[in-house]
């Protein structure tokens, strides 16, 4: 695994999984993960030898150059694609599903009311009508949209729809919450608000989150740790601790020198990958 070549700042230590503090229990173990696609131009390695350990209850953000395979990583974790090598293991299972996903863009069913969208994971699981209704109402209250239970998605703003998608993923009751660039389609003010909302919604729930993004600011703002992914094929280039108290407000952390130093450090690591990716990038498969 590549390490950051930069000097550690007082605020952060690039760490590899080997150097984890012993107290943190392991939640997801990704070892030697590989994904090879067959394309017209021959085999393409989206992921090759990716190792990553995710700790119980942590918010791990994953940044990488676009097209680097970070979404593929998430789809493998979600069970939507199968790896061609290595292993993913969700440890210490306590909930109904190993993983639930908040997808990028419009993923709500336009034909279902907001409450039925939120209750959908329970419908899939065969729960009864009353149980579904109660769970959906509770989850909608949690994301601040209790009043919109009976609305249809197309009556909501994009930001509200994405909060509904978060509520749906919470109802799924999964050990790991996977978020695939969930805010990337939103305008910036809405995105900043939702970044704060997400921290409030998760609070001290102890939910383990893997959050994929291409925004460095977002990764550092939200993550307990930030994993920087290499250009394709994806591996973990470096991991950074983000030891700042929550909730973090974008407008406040912007004034913190350590926070800015860390952001720059992540950017420097990513920069080399993006530059390398641009020069060597084969056509997107």
């Amino acid at each position: 695994m590549a390490r950051s070549s930069l000097q550690p700042s007082p605020a952060s230590q690039p760490v590899t999984p080997m150097e984890q503090p012993p107290a943190a229990a392991l939640k997801v173990r990704i070892a030697g993960l590989a994904k090879r696609y067959q394309s017209a131009a021959g085999p393409v390695d989206a992921i090759a030898g990716l190792d990553l350990d995710v700790r119980e209850g942590e918010f791990l953000t994953v940044v990488g150059p676009s097209g680097c395979g970070k979404s593929t990583l998430l789809r493998i974790l979600a069970g939507l694609e199968t790896a061609t090598g290595g292993a993913v293991e969700v440890l210490d299972r306590r909930r109904r599903l190993p993983a639930a996903v908040v997808f990028q863009g419009v993923s709500l069913f336009p034909w279902l009311r907001v409450e039925d969208n939120v209750a959908y994971p329970l419908w899939v699981a065969g729960s009864g009508r009353r149980r579904r209704k109660e769970a959906a109402r509770a989850a909608l209250e949690r994301v601040g949209l209790g009043r919109f239970a009976r609305a249809y998605p197309n009556q909501l703003s994009e930001g509200m729809r994405q909060r509904v998608a978060i509520a749906r993923a919470l109802v799924a009751d999964a050990d790991v919450l996977l978020m695939d660039e969930p805010f990337s389609a939103l305008d910036e003010p809405t995105r900043l608000l939702l970044q704060e909302d997400l921290q409030a919604i998760l609070g001290k729930s102890g939910q383990t989150v893997i959050f994929v993004t291409h925004s460095i600011d977002e990764a550092v703002l939200l993550g307990d740790r930030v994993a920087v992914i290499t250009a394709r094929p994806a591996r973990v280039r470096a991991l950074y601790d983000v030891p700042f108290p929550r909730p973090r407000r974008y407008t406040e952390v912007r004034h913190d020198r350590h926070f800015n130093d860390l952001t720059v450090e992540v950017w420097e690591a990513l920069r080399e990958e993006v530059a390398g990716g641009i020069r060597a990038a084969p056509a997107e498969s």
């Binding site: 789809r75 979600a78 069970g79 939507l80 599903l97 993983a99 639930a100 996903v101 997808f103 990028q104 863009g105 419009v106 993923s107 069913f109 959908y120 994971p121 419908w123 899939v124 699981a125 799924a172």
Partner: peptide
């Protein structure tokens, strides 16, 4: 949109439920 089938599949919906709901 493929993402809607992904939603159902990621929740481990049965084939029948995928057809009925999506």
């Amino acid at each position: 949109p493929p993402v809607m089938l992904d939603v159902a599949r990621s929740l481990r919906a049965s084939r029948l439920r995928q057809y009925l709901s999506v």
